[in-house]
């Protein structure tokens, strides 16, 4: 892996729901081997940015490159941890069943799970401290344990880049410290981790680099550069009322976000 290649390059990204831009002209490059936090108030487009990077949402303009390539070329090197609430945990499956899903490859549908897959899955379960729960039904886990199942599934993918959507929400102290020490371990192995986070109190402890969003990119850089009074009040303080008025106008009139033929 060449050092000058960015783990993620987001170029002029705009994503709209119902004609309403939720992410608008976002532009950032993220270095490899860092733990990166994406922060911003509720509804600021944090999850949308992750989904756009993972190709789950189609951008209305702009593009994303991962390790300098398109997502399809490097899919096996990227692991995604969705929000815990995004699935029904009453689904009839055990912890091991879910973590083994991390060993599936979309490109080879006929490949069966083998012994190596099982070993990797069990190691991943051990890393998040759930070994004694490996055969337990996922419906019988606590919220924190469920979050760790999702992280174990991503670990089983043995990727180089991990994208996690709010892994610290609603977890107990044990889970939080388990995740944090995992992050350190991953960083030491040269992996890149992008995490959506909402708790400003802890950001400077957790992250090497921050991206502050509120529909637009408000700030990016090291925590001390980003966490200034001005940036935070721009993102959280309701200083952007003009921006949200424009967004509402665009939606009501089904107006295009960008004129045709404007160079990006």
């Amino acid at each position: 892996m060449k050092q000058d290649i960015h783990a993620i390059e987001v170029h002029n990204l705009t994503v709209s729901y119902d004609g309403r831009p939720v992410l608008w002209d976002i532009d950032f490059n993220l270095e490899c081997g860092k733990i990166i936090g994406v922060i911003g108030p509720n509804g600021s487009g944090k999850t949308t940015s992750l989904k756009a990077i993972m190709g789950l949402l189609k951008p209305s303009s702009g593009f994303v490159k991962i390790f300098g390539k398109s997502l399809d070329e490097v899919r096996d090197r990227v692991a995604y941890v969705p929000q815990r609430e995004s699935v029904d945990w009453d689904f009839p499956a055990s912890v091991l069943d879910v973590v083994l899903m991390g060993r599936y490859r979309g490109t080879n549908l006929f490949r069966r799970s083998n012994k190596t897959d099982l070993e990797i899955a069990l190691q991943s379960i051990a890393k998040v401290g759930l070994t004694e729960f490996k055969d337990r039904q996922i419906s019988q886990l606590s919220g924190g344990q469920q979050q760790r199942v999702f992280i174990a599934r991503a670990l089983a993918q043995q990727a180089d880049l991990y994208l996690m959507d709010e892994p610290f929400v609603g977890v107990d102290a044990a889970t939080e410290s388990a995740i944090l020490s995992l992050l350190q371990e991953m960083k030491n192995q040269g992996k890149t981790v992008l995490i959506i986070h909402h708790d400003l109190q802890t950001v400077s402890d957790y992250f090497d680099y921050l991206v502050l969003l509120n529909t637009r990119l408000i700030a990016k850089g090291e925590p001390h550069e980003v966490l200034t009074k001005e940036n935070l009040s721009n993102a959280y303080g309701g200083q952007l009322t003009l921006l949200s008025k424009i967004v509402d106008l665009i939606r009501q009139n089904e107006f295009p976000v960008r004129e045709k033929g404007v160079d990006l």
Binding site: Y80, M101, G106
Partner: peptide, 20 residues
């Protein structure tokens, strides 16, 4: 396609991210 169908039913978004 048992495993793929189960994954699709449990977590379709994740299934899409691994290229299913």
């Amino acid at each position: 396609f048992y495993r793929q169908l189960v994954l699709l039913s449990f977590n379709p978004e994740y299934a899409a991210t691994i290229g299913l």
